[in-house]
Design a protein around this nucleic acid. Structure first.
Lengths: 143, 143
DNA sequence: TCCTTGTGGTTTCCAATAGTGACCTGGTTA
DNA sequence: TAACCAGGTCACTATTGGAAACCACAAGGA
C-alpha cells in the first residue's frame, strides 16, 4: 500500500488501528460500513434481498423477476449472500432437484435497515435528478 | 404482493415499463433504488457524506481524514455528489482560493436514511463475518 | 530572480474487477 | 424432440480505482 506519503503526520490519521472516539464514526479502511457496502453495494444484492423478503423463491424464478440479470451474476450473488448468512439455500431432493432460496433473520434485519434508504430513494430520487439537470444546465454545458 | 410462493411461471416480467402496483417494489432496471445504489454504492460517497455530516470541510482536509483515497477519486466523487445536489461546493476568493464542501439539506436527508444501515453495519457485521467463517469451514474447503 | 511548499484540483496511464452473452452439462418431463 | 430446472465455464467488454504527473496561483526564503 502507501506507507507514509502524508506530508503532515500531525493529524489523527484514521488508518490507525482505532480511534477512541466512542462508537467512532470510522472513515477508514476498517470501517464496517465500507465492508457492508462492498458486499451489498453491487448491482444485484439489494434487489435479491428485497425480492426474497416477499417470500422464498427458486433460481429461475428470481431470474425471471429480476430484469437483465445473467445466470453467472445471479448464482454468484446468491452464493455471496449465502456465505454472508443473509439468505439460506435449501436443496430439496425432489424430482430433478429443487433449490429454494429464502431470507434469514439476519438478512431480514438488514432489509429492515435498508428499507429507510429504499423509501428515501423512491420518494426523493426525483429531487436528485432535478439537481443533476440543474447542474448540467448551469456549468455542465451552457456558459 | 404477499402471495408467498410463486409456482406458476406466468408472472409479469418486471422489465416491463412499469407495474401499476401502488408504489411498486420495482426489481427492474428503472428502479430508483438501483439508481441510488449506483450513485452511493461506490467506495467513497457514503464516507464523504458521513464526514460532511459533522461539518463543512476542505479538499485536503477530507483527503487527510479518509484513509487511502486518491485525489482523483476524491474530486470525482465530490463532483458526482455535488451534481446530485447532495453537497454544495463553495469557492471563497481568499488568498489562493479556498474551496469548502458542505452537505445540503437533501444530503442530510439521505444521511439520515443511511444512518440505520450504518448502525446495522457497525453492530451486526460481526455476525456476517461469523457466517462467512462458518460457510468457509463447512463447504468452502473442508469436505 | 529562482526555488520550494501548499492548495485545489485535472489528466493520463494502467491493473483489477465487475458484469455480459453465449454456450455447456445433466437430469426430468411432455 | 423440445423445453425446463439449476447452474458452470469461457471470452469479452466496461467500469472502478490507484499512482503519478501536471497546472495555476500564492507565499516565503536565498
Amino acid at each position: 500500500m502507501q506507507d507514509g506519503t502524508f506530508p503532515s503526520p500531525d493529524y489523527p490519521e484514521v488508518t490507525a488501528p482505532r480511534r477512541d472516539a466512542g462508537r467512532g464514526d470510522a472513515y477508514a479502511r476498517d470501517c464496517p460500513t465500507r465492508a457492508l457496502l462492498d458486499r451489498v453495494g453491487d448491482k444485484w444484492s439489494v434487489l435479491i434481498l428485497l425480492l426474497l423478503g416477499e417470500g422464498a423463491m427458486r433460481f429461475n424464478g428470481l431470474k425471471r423477476r429480476i430484469g437483465g440479470v445473467s445466470q453467472k451474476m445471479l448464482s454468484q450473488t446468491l452464493r455471496a449472500l449465502e456465505r454472508d448468512g443473509l439468505l439460506a439455500r435449501e436443496v430439496l431432493p425432489t424430482t430433478p432437484v429443487s433449490v429454494t432460496y429464502r431470507i434469514t433473520p439476519l438478512g431480514r434485519e438488514l432489509l429492515a435497515a435498508l428499507r429507510l434508504m429504499i423509501d428515501w430513494a423512491e420518494t426523493r430520487m426525483g429531487a436528485v435528478v432535478a439537481a443533476q439537470a440543474a447542474y448540467d444546465a448551469a456549468c455542465g454545458r451552457a456558459p
